[in-house]
Design a protein around this nucleic acid. Structure first.
Lengths: 335, 335
DNA sequence: GTGAAAGCGCTAACAT
DNA sequence: ATGTTAGCGCTTTCAC
C-alpha cells in the first residue's frame, strides 16, 4: 500500500509538503498542490488513518453504548447522533451491549486505550473503572436517555416523572380511578421516575395509591403479555393500564384482547415512547413521544464539547415530551 | 497517561521486556513478569491500542454496514456477529447507514484507511471503489442477508426464492387462488427473488400470474398500510396477501381490519422475517423465520478467514428458513 | 531471558 | 513556500 513517502517521491516534494497539501491546502502553493494531488492519484495513496490518529492523539471516534439496537426508540437516537457527528467530523462506533457489562467495558476500553475520544452511554451506568477524568474534572462521556444523576458528566434525559404524571392525568381525566401500571426493569431509574409521576398524579387527584395495581415487567412484548393475562383475570379489574413502554403496551393489549376485553371500551391502555408500531396497532396506542433524534444530537454535541475542554461543569439537559392521544384510551366504563 | 516507557522504568527493565511480558508472557521469566505486572498497576498503564494497531498493521476491527439498526431482524444478526467476533478477538464497529451511500463510503473508508481489517455489508452493494483486492483476489468483505451474486467476496443469504415459494404454497394449500403480493423496494434483490418464488408456486399450481395482484412497498409499516387500503377497496378482492416482510404485513393488517375485514376469515395475511412483534399482533402473523443470529456468526467467521488469507475463493452460503404458521392465514373463503 | 535499536506512517516544530 | 528532522508508543529483529 502506497504511503506518504511514495507520494512525496512521485511528486518530487518532501513528505511534509504532502502532509500539508492534504491537511492545510492553503499553506501550499497551488502549483505544488496540483503536483501532489496528481501523485496521490497516480500511486493510489490512502492515508493510514491509524497512523494519523495515533500521531495526532485525536481519533475523532465516539463510542456509543446501546443496550440494544433493536429498540426502535434507540435507533432514532442513533440517527440523531450520526447526523451531528458527521457534521462535526466524528465517527460513531456503535456498540450493541445487550446490557452485558463485559461488552460494555470492552467497548469502554476503546476510550481508555486511545481508540476513541469519548463515549455516550444510553444506560444508567458508568462503564469507566475511574482514572479517566480529564483536566476539567469531567469524564469523557455523556449519559443520555436513561440517566443516573451522579458523576462528572453531562446527562440528557426526559422529565420522566412529569411525563408519567401527564399520562396518568390523561387517564384520570377520562374517569379512570383504578389505573394499573406495568413497570420496567427494577434496575432502571426510568421505572422509579415514571412510578413517581404516576403517584404524583394520583396524589393530586386524592386517589390512594394501591400497590396491588403495580405489575412487574422488563420492557418486552412478552412481559407485557404476561401482565395483561394477569390483569384480565383480576376480580376487581382496573379500567386502565399504563405501561412504561410501548412494547409492554402492545404485549398487554394482545393479552387483554385475547381475554375478550375491548380496548378502550372495557379497558384503556397507554404506552410510552411512541415507537413506529404504536401507530399501527389495533387500536392505535396512546403514548408519550420523545424527541429521540434530538437526544442523540444533543448528546454528541455535548460530548464533543467535553472532549475539547469547552465545558467546565456537567450540564443536565432535560428534553421535552408530548402526549399523543390515540384510540387505545377512552372514557372509563361506568361500573 | 503512562506509557510503556514508564512501566519499564518503574519495573527496572527494558521496554521490550514489558512488551513481551504483556504479549507473550511465556517468553519472560515468572519473576520479571511479576515485576512488570506490579509496575503496570503502579503507574496505571493502559496500552495505547492506536499505537499497537498502527504498529502491528492489524486493527482487529470489523466494520458492519447496516441499512438500519432499527430493523429487528438486523438487530438479531448483529448479536450473532458480536458473539463470534468476541470469541475470535475482534471488535465490531456498527454503522447505521440508513441506506445512504455517503455514510456507507465513509465507513467503508475505515477499511481502506487501515482503521479496520474488513467489512460486512448487509445491503446488496459493494461499498468499495475497487483497488482493495487482497492477495487471494478477494475483497476484505462479506455480503450477508441481502446479497448480490457478483464480486470476489463471500455471501451469506437465504434461499429467498424457495422460501417465498413455500409460503405461496402454504396459501395455495389453504385454497387461495387470488394471492396478492406487497413487494419490497425495487432496488432490492430480495424483492426479485421472492417474486420469483411466488411465481414458481403459482406456476406449479397452474395458476396464471396476474400482475394486478402486485402492490408496491418499501418494507415499512406505512407502505403496508397504504397497500392494505388499496387491496381492501378492490372489487375482485384477493383472498390472501403475501407481504415481503413483517412490517409490511402488520401495516396491511391494520388497514384491512379498519376496512372491516376479518383476518383470516375474510382475508389471509402472511409476512416474512418473523420479527418479535409478529407473534404479538392481532392475529399473530404467519411468516418465514430466518436464522438471524447464524447469519451474523457465519458472516463474521467468513470475513476473518478472508482477512487471514485462509480462503481462496468466495463461498456462497445459503441459510435455511422455516415457515411459521400462525393465526393470520386460514382457509380461503368459499365465494 | 533480556536489552538495544530500528522503524511502522505520519505530523509538527524548526530551519531555510 | 518548502524541506529536515524528531518523535508519537509500540513491536520486533538482532545481539548478548
Amino acid at each position: 500500500m502506497a504511503n506518504i513517502r511514495d507520494v512525496a517521491d512521485s511528486a518530487g516534494v518532501s513528505v511534509a509538503t504532502v502532509s500539508r497539501a492534504l491537511q492545510q491546502p492553503e499553506r501550499v502553493s497551488p502549483k505544488t498542490r496540483t503536483k501532489v494531488m496528481t501523485a496521490v492519484d497516480l500511486v493510489g495513496y490512502k492515508p493510514n488513518l491509524m497512523a494519523v490518529k495515533f500521531r495526532s492523539g485525536k481519533t475523532h471516534n465516539l463510542v456509543v453504548l446501546v443496550p440494544t439496537v433493536a429498540n426502535v426508540f434507540f435507533a432514532r437516537v442513533i440517527s440523531g447522533m450520526q447526523e451531528t457527528a458527521a457534521e462535526l467530523g466524528y465517527s460513531i462506533l456503535l456498540a450493541n451491549t445487550l446490557g452485558n457489562p463485559d461488552i460494555e467495558s470492552h467497548y469502554a476500553k476503546m476510550v481508555s486505550t486511545s481508540q476513541a475520544d469519548g463515549l455516550i452511554q444510553l444506560r444508567a451506568l458508568n462503564p469507566f473503572d475511574n482514572s479517566m477524568i480529564n483536566d476539567n474534572g469531567l469524564l469523557p462521556m455523556v449519559n443520555a436517555c436513561e440517566v443516573i444523576d451522579e458523576g462528572n458528566y453531562p446527562t440528557v434525559s426526559l422529565d420522566n416523572r412529569a411525563a408519567a404524571k401527564a399520562m396518568t392525568e390523561h387517564l384520570l381525566g377520562l374517569g379512570h380511578t383504578r389505573i394499573a401500571m406495568i413497570k420496567g426493569p427494577h434496575s432502571s431509574p426510568l421505572t422509579q421516575d415514571r412510578l413517581l409521576g404516576y403517584k404524583d398524579a394520583l396524589n393530586d387527584a386524592n386517589i390512594a395509591f394501591d400497590d396491588s395495581l403495580l405489575f412487574p415487567g422488563d420492557f418486552t412484548l412478552q412481559a407485557g403479555y404476561n401482565a395483561g393475562v394477569t390483569i384480565a383475570q383480576q376480580a376487581d379489574r382496573p379500567t386502565a393500564v399504563f405501561c412504561e413502554n410501548d412494547e409492554t403496551a402492545i404485549g398487554a393489549m394482545q393479552a387483554l384482547k385475547q381475554a375478550g376485553l375491548r380496548i378502550p371500551e372495557d379497558i384503556s391502555v397507554a404506552g410510552f415512547d411512541d415507537i413506529a408500531f404504536s401507530a399501527f396497532c389495533d387500536p392505535p396506542l396512546t403514548t408519550i413521544a420523545q424527541p429521540a433524534e434530538e437526544f442523540g444530537q444533543t448528546a454528541v454535541s455535548l460530548l464533543i464539547d467535553v472532549i475539547n475542554g469547552k465545558i467546565r461543569k456537567a450540564p443536565k439537559v432535560i428534553m421535552p415530551f408530548e402526549l399523543i392521544a390515540r384510540g387505545s384510551t377512552g372514557p372509563a366504563r361506568i361500573v
